[in-house]
Design a protein around this nucleic acid. Structure first.
Lengths: 199, 199
DNA sequence: CAAATTACAAAAAACGTAAATCGTCATTTT
DNA sequence: AAAATGACGATTTACGTTTTTTGTAATTTG
């Protein structure tokens, strides 16, 4: 990990605050620079554009949740436990962001919808974690899918509703307990499906 | 079915054309009325508002696909066949609309996102068809779920990605063959899950 | 009297302009 | 030399004005 310059981290911190408090619409480079105690022109020494600065803020959050997911994937537990916790952590992380930080969630949601590089890369890395855990399950005999690639696609497709920002937005007003119960069923099914070679 | 007045159907036809060709943004009551050969005020004799007219256009499409679904659900085939065809018809109907009629798709998508009455009612009726077919499958012994309500929720949740407009928009650029293959896997799994009492 | 029109107020959209922000670069500061 | 600034044109946004559309109601037409 490269050591960031102090000004860069300061800008990023202030930008993060601004985005969380005021939202994308009222997020301006001038205001961020002012609060960071510098001219807006100087911000461009560290971030090539306003969009890049917003992406950087979102990326900080994405990387943080990626680390939590990687910790789960790297753990010593059985693959099925890890897959369950991976799905739950991802679903909960996104859902908590929606309820606790709607502005940041909205920025993330747009980055995903517009296929920004940061979200595409995040998607690739998260997918890799899923693949790793499923492969581990296959190696240990916990999972016995008939077709490994189809099994991975199946897991991602079936959990889509509880993970993808666009899908989570649709259920913002559904009681969390109800969502949790349905997700729990879905995961239980997915694990059995992987274990019994249905997929 | 109540016989509609000729002017009403004419307005609806012109409105449908306009929406398909020009999209929601450029859809005006004045333009529709003009093309239908009347003053805009007269349109309000038949539709209470611009929004109601747009909804009526979308509703025509929704009802048409509902009829196709009902035909499947009412057929004499085994429940698992019917459930598969129900899911495929719904997914294909929505996806075809997205590619062949993007403006109308967009209007539908917004009606769903904003929870218009027409989309809520459509959802309720489509869900009822799913319930009927699953119940039929339970009665005939084709399906043996441990919990009927959870089984229904499971089917709806797992197919969400291939049915919901918001999810379909995300995959507009994915080759149709790839989507079809994944959906086919998902359905096969779902039918086995229902049949073997995993859910 | 049902169907449609004209007339009109309220709401929304389109337009044009003023102001702010974005992004670049030459110059200054440390 | 690295960090920051001031100045400046290009873009975007904000805002007041004008036009169009929406929706209602009184009136006309067949």
């Amino acid at each position: 990990m490269p050591t960031r310059e102090p000004s860069e981290t300061r800008i990023l911190t202030v930008a993060s605050e601004h985005l969380r408090l005021h939202g994308l619409k009222r997020f301006t480079v001038v205001a961020v620079a002012e609060e960071a105690g510098m001219t807006h022109a100087n911000v461009y020494r560290y971030f090539p554009s306003r969009a890049a600065l917003v992406d950087a803020v979102v990326d900080v959050w994405l990387k943080a949740t990626e680390r939590r997911l990687a910790d789960i994937a790297d753990g010593p537990d059985p693959a099925d436990d890890k897959l369950e916790r991976l799905i739950l952590a991802l679903a909960k992380g996104n859902r908590d962001l929606l309820t606790e930080d709607p502005h940041l969630f909205s920025a993330l949601s747009q980055a995903v919808a517009k296929r920004h590089a940061i979200s595409r890369r995040n998607r690739t890395r998260v997918r890799a974690l899923f693949e790793r855990v499923i492969d581990e399950g296959i190696a240990s005999g916990t999972f016995e899918p008939r077709d490994r690639d189809k099994a991975i696609a199946y897991v991602i497709d079936t959990t889509h509703r509880f993970i993808h920002p666009a899908a989570l937005e649709l259920e913002a007003d559904v009681p969390q307990a109800s969502v949790d119960a349905r997700l729990s069923t879905l995961i239980r099914v997915a694990l059995r499906v992987l274990a019994t070679g249905i997929v």
